[in-house]
Amino acid sequence: MVSFENVTKSFNSRETGRKAFRALDNISYSVPRGAITGIIGRSGAGKSTLVRLVNGLERPSEGRVIVDGTDVAALDEVALRSVRRSIGMIFQHFNLLSSRTVYDNVAMPLEIAGVAKQDIKKRIEPLIDLVGLSERTRHYPAQLSGGQKQRVGIARALASEPKLLLSDEATSALDPETTQQILGLLKTINRDLGLTVLLITHEMEVVKAVTSRVAVMDKGQIVESGRTFNVFTAPEHETTRSMLAALPGGSLPDWIGRQVIAAPKPGSNALLRLRFFGETADQPLVSQLMTVLESPVNIIAGTVDEIAGEPYGTLYVAYSADPAVMQKADQFYAQTGLNAEVVGYVA
């Protein structure tokens, strides 16, 4: 649906006029049709610049941006307006007109396009119902909550019947409960309308909850990408690992982290991170491990969650660092497929 081909974007220095800042550096990446794909990175990573290339608000310094078979950067303004009608956009701060009602805000793109009033009504009323605002049709933005305003923004983005929906930090200004409601709505839209969604965010929780594929950005480059589940369960790049550590259960509690040493000492315990997914997700492997080791296993911390709809769990455990015990444990992990990583040692 969207393809970035060797895309570089540089911005000129205001003082010298020379290209002083490279926001995107030779990016090649494809967004599959019909999926929800996440682009995640810290502030300044280049994600918002990337999404602005898709709808032609920015043009690449080098490379091509292909949207549904069309090279967006090669279009003149007239042709670009036509392409933009097939691309919906949801903003972080809603961008609603305070003087227009819910209905009128949603209808605005169609009015600008010159669609007849009776046709606007036929298209807008089902959309307002879809986002759950049928009882708020005549309300103004000042009368709505943040979540309701974002629902208006989503309905407006869908008014022109786009093939692609861009979401740029659409949940960043919302509380956690409202964020989950909006993400649920995006999943419904993706499923029921078959709409391709490109979601830009700095929140790992958002990516985990709603996307099927993800690309991680750092310093203008995509440093890791793939199925969301694979990237979350086996991160390869330091940026990904660092961002995942912010998730609940993603890192050791501080009280135990302060005690961790790099090498074992006489009588110390090994501290391991166990990851449960796939066939290991619903097996009583910890109780089996205790039996196999014939040694106490101390459960330090853990969490059970879903990533892109698939079960996933992390558990921190400690047991004797005696070589014989460690060997038994390694054999157990090899036989069961349980993912285990020694993260250090504790007294």
Score class of each variant (00 low, 15 high):
270 A>N: 02
311 P>I: 10
153 G>R: 06
139 H>P: 04
22 R>P: 02
347 A>P: 15
140 Y>M: 05
267 G>K: 14
191 R>T: 09
168 D>A: 02
314 T>V: 15
304 V>S: 14
71 D>R: 09
337 G>D: 09
17 G>I: 06
235 P>S: 07
281 A>D: 07
118 Q>P: 05
53 L>G: 03
265 K>T: 15
108 M>R: 10
166 L>A: 02
108 M>H: 13
191 R>Y: 02
226 G>E: 01
126 P>K: 06
258 R>C: 11
344 G>H: 08
155 A>G: 07
186 L>E: 02
177 E>D: 11
88 G>M: 06
273 R>Y: 08
202 H>K: 09
69 G>D: 10
284 P>S: 06
280 T>N: 15
242 S>Y: 02
148 Q>Y: 03
239 T>N: 08
116 A>Y: 11
138 R>M: 12
24 L>F: 04
287 S>T: 15
300 I>W: 00
274 L>M: 10
340 A>P: 00
50 L>P: 12
202 H>N: 10
93 H>P: 11
200 I>A: 04
114 G>L: 11
158 L>Q: 05
236 E>S: 14
154 I>H: 02
159 A>R: 07
317 V>Q: 02
60 P>A: 07
137 T>C: 10
171 T>A: 00
286 V>Y: 05
62 E>N: 13
45 A>G: 07
74 A>S: 15
84 R>I: 08
335 Q>F: 02
174 L>K: 01
293 L>M: 08
256 I>E: 12
340 A>S: 12
260 V>S: 12
244 L>C: 06
54 V>R: 11
77 E>D: 15
73 A>I: 03
114 G>I: 08
32 P>G: 05
63 G>P: 03
16 T>G: 09
217 M>I: 03
284 P>L: 10
343 V>N: 07
145 S>A: 01
117 K>Q: 14
148 Q>L: 02
160 S>C: 15
270 A>S: 14
194 G>I: 12
60 P>V: 13
319 Y>P: 03
258 R>P: 04
254 D>V: 10
192 D>L: 10
11 F>Y: 14
121 K>G: 07
177 E>C: 00
271 L>V: 03
74 A>K: 14
58 E>N: 13
216 V>P: 02
244 L>A: 05
325 V>F: 03
125 E>Q: 14
50 L>Y: 09
193 L>F: 15
83 V>L: 15
170 A>E: 03
141 P>F: 01
261 I>F: 12
134 S>L: 14
81 R>E: 10
229 F>V: 00
23 A>I: 04
16 T>D: 10
51 V>M: 11
163 K>L: 12
328 K>H: 07
345 Y>D: 06
73 A>C: 10
203 E>P: 08
334 A>N: 11
258 R>V: 06
165 L>K: 00
216 V>D: 01
102 V>E: 04
313 G>P: 05
248 P>K: 01
197 V>P: 05
224 E>P: 07
172 S>K: 03
240 T>E: 04
157 A>F: 00
70 T>C: 08
42 R>I: 08
103 Y>M: 04
5 E>D: 14
336 T>V: 06
244 L>T: 05
18 R>S: 13
205 E>H: 04
208 K>T: 03
212 S>F: 08
35 A>K: 15
180 Q>K: 08
113 A>T: 11
195 L>Y: 07
310 E>L: 14
248 P>I: 00
223 V>M: 09
157 A>T: 03
155 A>V: 10
197 V>T: 08
209 A>I: 04
240 T>V: 12
232 F>N: 00
245 A>Q: 13
160 S>H: 09
11 F>E: 10
